[in-house]
Design a protein around this nucleic acid. Structure first.
Lengths: 199, 199
DNA sequence: CGGCACACTGACACGCGTGTCAGTCGAGGC
DNA sequence: GCCTCGACTGACACGCGTGTCAGTGTGCCG
C-alpha cells in the first residue's frame, strides 16, 4: 500500500469514526483502530485530529461548490425552473451519497473552534450571497416574489439543510433525491399553505 | 445571597460562557471566573459541566414548548392564519430574546453525547409530529397543499431554524420578530419563486 | 550478503482539566 | 465571648488523551 492509498484509508476511517461518535468523542485511538494502523502512523500523515477533520470538511465543501451552478435566465436550452431543479438534485444527491460527511458537516463542523467557525461561515456566506443575488436578479425579471431576498436565502437554505439532515438520519435511500427535489421545488414555488395570506 | 440566587447566578454566567466559547471550549474555570465563585462552589450546586448545560437546555425547551400552541380550525375568534402567525411570532420572539440560548441550542446541543442527542431528538420529533399532524389535518380541510406532510414539517422547521440562527448571529433586534414573521408566513403560503412549477 | 532507507510501531511522558476535601470564614444561637 | 453550622474556598491528586521518538521490520541496491 503506497502513501497515497494509506492516507486515503486513514481519511476514510476517520470520517466514519467522526460520523459515528462525533468529533469530540472520537479519539485518535478510535481512528487508528478503525484504520488498523499504529498511533504513530497517524501522525506521519496528519498534523493532528483537527487536521484530518478540516481536510475532510474542505474536500466535501469543494464538491458541494461544484454541485451548485449559477442560474442563467438567458439560456435558451434550459428553463430557469429546470436549472433550479438540477441544482437541487445535484446537492441532494451529493449529500445522500455521503451520509457520514452529511452528519459531520451538519452537526460537528459548526462549533469546532473559533477559527474553523469563521472559515465555515465564510463558505456559507458565499452560498447565501449567490442565492440572495439570484433572487434579487429574479425579482427584476418578475420570477421571484417581492420581499427580503436575504431572508428568502436563509429560509431556502435552512429548509434544505433540515431535509437533508433528517433524510440522512432516517436512512432515506439515494433514489429519494428526485422525489425530494420535487417537494422542495414546489415548496419554493408555492409554499405549503393554501390559505389567504392576510399580511 | 441565598442558595437560589446563587444557583441562578451560576446558571446565567454558565449560559454566557457556553454561548461565547461553545460547550467544549468552555472550562469550569471560565464559568466560575464569570460567576465570581470558587471552583468548589460550582460543585456544590451542580453535578458537573454537563449538568448545568442540560439544565439550561431543558429550561429553554420547556419555554419553547409553551410558545407553540395547537391550531384550532374551529376557533371562531381567530382564523387559522392568525393562529399560525401568532405561533411564529411567539417562537421568534422567544429566541430573539435569549440570543445566548439560541446559539447554544442550535450549535452546541446537538452532538453533545449520545444520551443527550437521543433526548433532544425526541423533543424535536414531538414538534415535527405536531406540525406534520397539523398539516395532515389541514390537507383534509383543503388549506394545506397536497404532498408529504412530514417533508413539509422538515422544510418549515428548517427554514425557521436557519432564519433564527442567522438573526441571532447578525444581532437582529427583538422588534424584528414581527417583520420576520410576515416573511416566514408568506413564504409558507406562497414560497418565493413565481415561475410555473412544471413538476 | 551487508547496509541503507523508509514506512511503521507502541510504550511512555507530559499537559490539561476535572472533581475533591481539608480548611477558612462569618452569621446566629446560647 | 464562645461554639456551631453551613456556605464557601482553592491547592492538589488523579485520569485521560495526546504527541513523540527510539526501535523494529522489510525491501532494495550494490
Amino acid at each position: 500500500m503506497d502513501k497515497i492509498e494509506r492516507r486515503a484509508q486513514i481519511l476514510a476511517r476517520a470520517r466514519d469514526v467522526f460520523a459515528k461518535r462525533g468529533y469530540h468523542a472520537a479519539k485518535i485511538e478510535d481512528i487508528v483502530a478503525a484504520a488498523k494502523v499504529a498511533r504513530g502512523t497517524f501522525y506521519l500523515y496528519f498534523e493532528d485530529k483537527r487536521g484530518v477533520f478540516v481536510e475532510l470538511v474542505d474536500r466535501f465543501l469543494a464538491r458541494l461548490h461544484l454541485a451548485i451552478l449559477r442560474i442563467d435566465p438567458r439560456d435558451p436550452s434550459r428553463s430557469v425552473a429546470a436549472q433550479i431543479r438540477e441544482n437541487i438534485v445535484r446537492v441532494l444527491t451529493l449529500f445522500l451519497q455521503d451520509r457520514a460527511m452529511t452528519k459531520i458537516l451538519l452537526t460537528d463542523a459548526p462549533g469546532l473552534d473559533a477559527d474553523f467557525d469563521r472559515k465555515l461561515r465564510a463558505v456559507y456566506e458565499e452560498v447565501l450571497n449567490l442565492l440572495a443575488g439570484s433572487f434579487s436578479e429574479g425579482q427584476t425579471l418578475g420570477i421571484v416574489a417581492v420581499g427580503d431576498t436575504r431572508v428568502f436565502a436563509y429560509l431556502t437554505v435552512g429548509a434544505i439543510k433540515e431535509l437533508l439532515y433528517q433524510s440522512v438520519m432516517l436512512d432515506f435511500d439515494e433514489g429519494s433525491a428526485e422525489r425530494l427535489t420535487s417537494e422542495v421545488f414546489s415548496f419554493l414555488c408555492r409554499g405549503c399553505l393554501r390559505i389567504p395570506d392576510e399580511g
